[in-house]
């Protein structure tokens, strides 16, 4: 992470997009600008009261995470875009009924996961071979947050190859296990959040994460360098 990002993580995506934005549970004050950053619940309240800019802030705050999750689920930027868009549209529609007791972030992710899973199910039903997707699953857009490689092209190449292998393997994992693994290892959520998002008990989350990792371990077994 770039210097200074740790502090700016507090103020969300704006100053450090590479930072993994955590849900803002309470209003915080930006270290750099001194401006207060509204919490999720505050923004939700404002949105419910008809403040359009508040929802825009929520979108800006979480769009990268939702998009990243969607991309990892479907491995296709176009689908990820659609899923992200659909997620926020649904959230916007359902926001009037949103209970402020709940965590907006997990609620939003729950919508996103459901949208992504629904999309994948639809695709499976259609069983179409899409020309927009490669056989291996998706397209290979440049990962925008990947830091620029300086002076280590071999390492970068290995990392890219490893990422590609992991992504390919991930796609072969059953959807429910993949979702759990993505939420845990990619999105770095804890078990209780994942349980809330997936609407399953924590024991099930534990089991799914294990199954997903175990499947990945088997799929990547022939990859000698992946441990390093």
């Amino acid at each position: 992470m770039a210097p200074g990002c740790e502090a700016s993580r507090l103020v969300g995506w704006e100053l450090c997009p590479a930072a993994r934005v955590k849900p803002v549970d309470e209003t915080v004050v930006s270290v750099s600008s001194g401006k207060s950053v509204p919490s999720d619940s505050e923004l939700v309240e404002r949105t419910q009261a008809g403040d359009a800019t508040a929802f825009e802030l929520l979108v800006r705050r979480y769009q990268d995470r939702v998009y990243n999750m969607a991309y990892r689920m479907c491995r296709n930027t176009a689908d990820a875009f659609d899923i992200t868009q659909d997620t926020f549209v649904r959230a916007l529609r359902a926001l009037p009924q949103f209970q402020l007791r709940a965590n907006f972030f997990t609620w939003l992710f729950r919508i996103g996961v459901n949208v992504a899973l629904t999309q994948r199910r639809k695709e499976a039903r259609r069983h179409a071979f899409s020309l927009t997707r490669q056989e291996t699953g998706g397209d290979s857009d440049p990962p925008a947050f990947e830091p620029a490689v300086a002076g280590d092209p071999a390492g970068a190449s290995t990392r890219r190859e490893l990422s590609a292998r992991i992504e390919e393997a991930l796609e072969q994992v059953e959807a429910e296990y993949r979702t759990a693994v993505i939420l845990k290892d990619v999105e770095e959520l804890d078990y209780s959040e994942i349980a809330e998002i997936l609407d399953v008990p924590i024991g099930t989350v534990k089991s799914r994460i294990f199954r997903g990792r175990e499947a990945l371990r088997r799929l990547l077994a022939d990859w000698q360098d992946w441990g390093s």
């Binding site: 990243n68 992200t84 990962p143 993505i182 845990k184 290892d185 990619v186 990945l216 990547l220």
Partner: peptide
């Protein structure tokens, strides 16, 4: 496995969302 997944590059959402 967990570290490999965590090291996957982050994909930024396009502005047009």
């Amino acid at each position: 496995v967990s570290r490999g997944l965590s090291a996957l590059p982050r994909i930024a959402a396009p502005d047009r969302i």
